[in-house]
Amino acid sequence: MIEIKNLNFGYSKKKLLFKDLSMQLKAGHIYGLLGKNGAGKSSLLKNMAGLVYAFSGKIDVIGYNPAKRQPALLKEICFIPEEFYLPSVKIDSYVKANAAFYSNFDHNYFGDLLAEFDIPVDQKLVNMSYGQKKKLIIAFGLATKAQLIIMDEPTNGLDIPSKAQFRKIMAAALTDDRCIIISTHQVRDLDNLIDTVIMLDESCVALKASVEEITKKLCFKRIKELDDTVIYAEPSLSGYHALMPNYHDEDSKLDMELLFNAVLAEKIKIKAAFN
């Protein structure tokens, strides 16, 4: 669905954010895009949506170049930005004005999502809380039935029940012809939702692996004492949360936060575990 080849991008030519970045994203997956502040998560998403222009390299999204901003591609992209704007109108006026651009817009599904997110339908958009607005644009975006769903920090501003609803809705929204990319700092919000992890660090992809592949090669454990096999560990009340190579095919649950910190701290060791 998305093919990025040798992408060179930055906000200044002297300091590139991505150097020769390449990756492929396929339909039928939910990708979690992680990285430190300033690692380029939002910029990568904007490159995919054609909101910024790269210096060189190629991006192909469903057979189109996103930089051309062609309507045929734009109607297949649902982009949920971190900061967004909604006009001072009611939901039905907003839908009337925007939904017609998306030939596959599903009004019934949109109604169901509004009900599930508990959004008041007769309220003006400007009078809604930040969380309600966010849920509304998520509901609208999903109802467009776009093939590519890009979300930048979608759980920011959502309360705890809404985060659970979000995970449930997103898991149900995944189909074989859809690709969902979620960028977030709040890695715990993506637990049990994403199937592939992409980590950006120092202008490149530090890790891109499926959850299955990660738990096959790495083991997430609680241990009392550290030994030589431990790649990375964080102290806890009862010992350590440790990450180590999975030599004995042990079953363990992916700890996204631990993995994230491990990739930043022990990049070489983690790469070695995947090679």
Binding site: L51, R69, P71, L74, K75, F79, N98, F101
Partner: peptide, 13 residues
Amino acid sequence: KPKTIIDLLIPAS
């Protein structure tokens, strides 16, 4: 920025 994103991504040329 927030208004630009919505405007640029509206499916029209």
